[in-house]
């Protein structure tokens, strides 16, 4: 990536984020629902209400409100959550790691599973197993994340209770962590008992988020591999004595992976969006779960902060995707 195109990307990202901020800001103030009405106790006087309004800047005109919010966000002040009465940035910093770990785990799970199935199906493409994989995968493609979540709750929560149904970690062991990246920290500090506990908590949400992505990766990669496998260079490599496994892994996969990465990137942003409902179902303490509470409580500062975080995540994922696509395609160097 040249300096120019890098600058261009960053500028575009900033404009996108700004646009997202404007839209959310306006939308939140146009839709009905008064945050102050949710906070006040029944007997509050008009003066109390007006004071509260002034405290949160809600007595100003819309453009003025936006300007105030924007300048303070730029100086690192995301405001105070109306419902939780805590600093928004602090809340985000507390909850974001949980969601990042969940999304990353789901992504890794989906990518590994997708590649393994696609490669296996390609290796066995001359057997009856290949159409079976297609049919099964077609079924999996039709099941969205929240349906998986509910099905998993039913299976493992009710019928076969082996995994914890909700939360992120056993509350007793929570104290020992220096950061909010519980999974990463327990892994790095080799605390395997905590690691196991966290992993058990994560299995169901990871499955719910990762299975739909895995079936999309399987489908796209399997098709791309099939296309690559009939190319002349595969034939010549076969003549040079390459085994079928090597043909798939060394010759075909690297050409099939490019289009798969591009699509996985887009789908991963959907997965991040999916954390909202899936975290809710499993009472997983991430920003997705927090977003639902924020919306229910019309917690404007918190919603705005959350939207900015989600927006920034999407932009980062897209940037990373583009970089990976370039890295895997020698023709796009320069």
């Amino acid at each position: 990536m040249t300096a120019y195109s890098f600058f261009h990307r960053v500028l575009m990202a900033a404009i996108t984020l700004f646009g997202v901020a404007v839209i959310v800001f306006v939308l939140l103030r146009v839709v009905p629902g008064d945050p102050i009405a949710m906070m006040i106790s029944p007997g509050a006087s008009e003066a109390d209400i007006a004071a509260l309004r002034a405290q949160y800047g809600l007595d100003q005109s819309l453009p003025v409100q936006f300007w105030i919010w924007l300048t303070s966000v730029l100086s690192g002040d995301f405001g105070t959550s109306i419902s939780l009465r805590r600093d928004v940035l602090e809340l985000l910093a507390e909850r974001l790691p949980a969601t990042l770990e969940l999304a990353a785990a789901a992504l890794v799970f989906a990518v590994v599973l997708g590649i393994v199935i696609a490669v296996t199906a390609t290796l066995l493409s001359r057997t009856k197993l290949s159409p079976l994989v297609d049919t099964l995968n077609g079924l999996f493609l039709a099941v969205p994340d929240f349906v998986w979540a509910l099905a998993l709750v039913l299976i493992f929560g009710v019928l076969l209770p082996v995994f914890p149904l909700s939360g992120r970690i056993n509350p007793d062991s929570q104290e020992g962590f220096a950061t909010q990246f519980y999974l990463l920290e327990s892994l790095l500090t080799l605390r395997f008992r905590d690691l196991a506990d966290i992993s058990l908590h994560m299995i169901m949400p990871v499955l719910a988020l990762g299975l739909p992505l895995a079936s999309i990766i399987t489908k796209v990669l399997k098709e791309a591999l099939a296309e690559a496998m009939v190319q002349d260079y595969i034939l010549l490599a076969r003549l040079k004595g390459m085994s079928r496994l090597r043909l798939v892994l060394q010759e075909a996969l690297r050409n099939a992976i490019g289009p798969t990465i591009a699509l996985t990137g887009v789908q991963f942003t959907f997965l991040i969006g999916g954390t909202v409902i899936v975290e809710r179902i499993f009472a997983y303490p991430g920003i997705g779960n927090m977003a639902i509470d924020a919306v229910i409580n019309r917690d404007l500062p918190l919603i705005q902060g959350l939207v900015l975080v989600f927006g920034a995540l999407f932009i980062l994922v897209n940037l990373a995707t583009d970089a990976l696509v370039v890295a895997f395609n020698p023709r796009m160097e320069a």
Binding site: L236, A237, L239, R254, N255, P330
Partner: peptide, 20 residues
Amino acid sequence: MGSDIALIPQDPQTALNPGR
């Protein structure tokens, strides 16, 4: 094959792996 009998393909464009 490939050892005692080798092939020069028709189209060198598709006969080389673009990724290697």
